[in-house]
């Protein structure tokens, strides 16, 4: 649906919305499948498509205004543009940001960077040992010592 130019325009801002980690280990939103997710959303929902088209046009105009090839636009200029966009098109910006976050964090390859399994939670789940009853009893001991704390009526 989106052509290469449009995809590149959106990637330009995606990599600033969720930048890579300083050490480069965690990728930016521009380097994951976020663009594919956004395109899928845009295909599924007409209202999203219309909204994203507004954004694409604004990014295109921004790139033209820099008089630079898209590959040479620096991060500082893009961030400045995004701040203007956030102010002037708040509804688009919030929705686009929301979908960017959803696309990024639904990537199974991204979750492990935050300690969360790339697998679905079921059926394996996580190993968390049950507390030993002695340990738990010692933990609640001060609470018990204070006595009843409800009103009898």
């Amino acid at each position: 649906m989106w052509n290469i130019e449009e995809r590149n325009l959106l990637k330009l801002i995606l990599k600033e919305l969720i930048p890579a980690s300083e050490d480069g280990k965690i990728p930016s939103a521009g380097l994951t499948n976020v663009i594919n997710y956004l395109e899928k959303k845009s295909k599924e929902e007409l209202s999203v498509k219309k909204l994203f088209n507004v954004g694409i046009l604004r990014v295109k105009n921004f790139v033209i205004s820099t008089k630079k090839d898209i590959n040479y636009i620096n991060s500082k200029d893009t961030i400045l543009f995004l701040k203007i966009l956030e102010n002037e098109e708040p509804f688009f910006f919030k929705e686009f940001l929301k979908h960017t976050y959803m696309g990024y964090y639904s990537e199974p390859t991204v979750r492990p960077y935050f300690g969360v399994s790339s697998n679905p939670p079921h059926p394996i789940g996580y190993e968390v040992p049950l507390e030993e009853s002695n340990f738990l009893e010692s933990l609640v001991e001060p609470v018990k010592k204070r006595g009843v704390c409800y009103r009898k009526c």
């Binding site: 939670p121 079921h122 059926p123 394996i124 789940g125 996580y126 190993e127 968390v128």
Partner: peptide
């Protein structure tokens, strides 16, 4: 419980 942490998404266990 398998400690999946997603109780709101249905408990497949």
């Amino acid at each position: 419980c398998v400690n999946a942490g997603t109780c709101d998404l249905g408990c497949a266990a």
